[in-house]
Design a protein around this nucleic acid. Structure first.
Lengths: 182, 182
DNA sequence: GTCTATACGAAGATAGAC
DNA sequence: GTCTATCTTCGTATAGAC
């Protein structure tokens, strides 16, 4: 298949973004991690690094969106709980070295194109979570703002736990959010 | 005074971290922004960039801590409101180009030393906010976890608003947090 | 689709004069 | 305390062969 190493590079870039940040996600690092051939970088991404990073952001967004979709039809508290649990896994499995690649790009770029990709991802998460929360029994007026709080709180808590190298802040935040959802 | 250009470099680095991220905060950028003399970099920071960044993180932490302290003795909802308002100002005044320098460092470094500085800042904010919230009437059991939610929610909301170049997500999050504090 | 070779700039860091 | 000059490494990107 044509998109073989292309896909690997996107996934690898997304992992690197989540752990090392935007600038440390260099082509050399991506190639080292994925084993993809050096010669194919500009074949697959003629516009260079921005194009690769944009694809990685989109990819990370899609993965999380699919995960959110899994809780369709569940009560609101389950929707929130599954979303938070996914982030908890990112922290624990990486021993607090990994976070969110979309956030990493947002705070390290001034490129309007990359910000647009990140914005689309965040908006999509908020929108879909809001819909599922409402379907799960949350009043319509609350669902949208709680979805924003859920995304912001989870993202912020992941950062706190990475800095402190401890699950404690994440658990505190997570507990309060679940109280609100229940 | 000996610490003249040293102080300017630290403040400049903190501003650059908040807008451009860790790797874009280069010595050249700091010098351009502050007008500090190139020759004095390694005089003031013999351990190089890590030392400058660590000082910038500490500085940003101290500024916010002083701001938190200003709401000592106020009701819990005022403590929360002032903290959120400060972050709103960062967003609006920078036209959504600036965020939190401590967060920017956290997600772009793997240096244990820098993570320690960031962790100390976040812990300090949580601790002091928790104390003031409790003194402001919040039940002791709630104050600590709400402080964590406040810091995480604010940090996350700043990122969402930067990505979307709009105050909307921040306002949604801020509104919910203030409901909880009141 | 993949390869090597290379151009070009910028980064952090060091040495030694003033 | 500050200067210039320089070293080394690494980043993105391009050219042209296979």
């Amino acid at each position: 298949m044509a998109g073989e190493s292309r896909t690997r590079m996107i996934e690898g870039a997304s992992r690197l973004l989540a752990t090392k940040g935007l600038q440390e996600t260099s082509f050399s690092e991506v190639l080292k991690l994925t084993g993809a051939p050096r010669g194919s970088i500009y074949h697959h991404f003629p516009e260079g690094k921005e194009q690769l990073v944009a694809a990685a952001v989109d990819h990370a967004g899609r993965i999380a969106t699919e995960l959110i979709e899994l809780s369709a039809g569940e009560p609101a508290v389950v929707v929130a709980s599954r979303f938070l649990e996914a982030w908890r896994q990112v922290l624990v499995r990486s021993n607090f070295h990994a976070g969110c690649s979309v956030l990493a790009v947002t705070v390290a770029t001034e490129s309007p194109e990359l910000l647009d990709h990140a914005a689309a991802v965040f908006r999509n998460w908020r929108r879909r979570l809001g819909e599922l929360l409402e379907q799960g029994g949350m009043p319509a007026d609350d669902a949208q703002s709680f979805a924003a709080l859920l995304v912001a709180g989870a993202e912020g808590a992941v950062v706190l736990s990475r800095a402190e190298q401890s699950i404690e802040p994440f658990e505190l935040v997570s507990g309060r959010l679940l109280d609100l959802a229940g």
